[in-house]
């Protein structure tokens, strides 16, 4: 579905991604793990068109039997239009808009009002708290609720591929547990997920496959269980012996 082929990305003058390649197959959950500064967020932002690679290609096939697109030169809004939704690091909720308004901004590129209302109800089923707080200013939600709002908002564009940047950031273990269960649920309903996580234990448990990034390169990849069992990964990211 998505194929990142040897991308090199600079942020300003800093050479951040030194040739990253990875692939996401339809229906999968793929995790990127790695230390701070490894280039995880940069990878996600390059895929969703917020940054552009100096070299390399990103190929994306929205429909299983449809044509393939080159994403690396498209502006962000065109990429959203083609079914990739990015839920940014730190949530980025719009604090003075209500919960409902936040979700509606997520459907900004859509014009099918009935479909938008259906998806609004679906998101409220997925995260009941959002329905209960629909008229409240989003800034008054707790951290966990804000993350749910950010995920729900990303779903409002009806993505085929959902990109999540550190969904567990700053959340308590119980909330993370619920959130990840919902992500698995979203995935079962047919949305492919690519996520970046500091919380490697949870990420490897959830993901079908994962990549380990170190200073702008992929150093390891494999299934979630494989990586969780790998002595290197255990030492570096899972805090285990």
């Amino acid at each position: 579905m998505l194929e990142v082929d040897d991308i090199h990305v600079y942020r300003g003058r800093t050479y951040v991604l030194k040739g990253i390649s990875l692939r996401v197959t339809r229906g999968e959950i793929v995790a990127l793990i790695g230390a701070n500064g490894a280039g995880k967020t940069t990878t996600l932002r390059t895929i969703s068109g917020l940054l552009h690679p100096r070299r390399g290609h990103i190929r994306y096939r929205p429909e299983a039997d449809g044509p393939e697109l080159e994403l690396d030169r498209l502006p962000a809004e065109e990429i959203v239009r083609r079914g990739i939704s990015h839920c940014p690091e730190g949530r980025g909720i719009f604090a003075s808009l209500t919960v409902r308004e936040n979700l509606l901004v997520g459907a900004y590129l859509r014009r099918d009002n009935r479909g938008i209302e259906d998806d609004y109800r679906r998101v409220c089923d997925l995260f009941p708290i959002l329905g209960q707080r629909a008229g409240q200013a989003a800034g008054s939600l707790s951290g966990g609720e804000q993350e749910m709002l950010a995920v729900g908002r990303a779903l409002m564009s009806r993505p085929r591929l959902l990109i999540l940047d550190e969904p567990s950031l700053g959340l308590g273990p119980l909330v993370v547990e619920t959130l990840f269960a919902t992500l698995a649920d979203i995935n079962r309903r047919g949305v492919t997920i690519l996520l970046v996580e500091q919380n490697a234990v949870m990420a490897l448990e959830l993901a079908h496959r994962a990549y380990v990034l170190e200073t702008g390169r992929v150093t390891l990849s494999g299934s979630g269980e494989e990586l969780a069992a790998d002595p290197e990964v255990r030492r570096a990211y899972l805090g285990g012996a």
């Binding site: 939704s85 901004v105 564009s157």
Partner: peptide
């Protein structure tokens, strides 16, 4: 950034 992520 979030707005841009949503296609704005």
């Amino acid at each position: 950034l979030a707005a841009q992520c949503l296609g704005v």
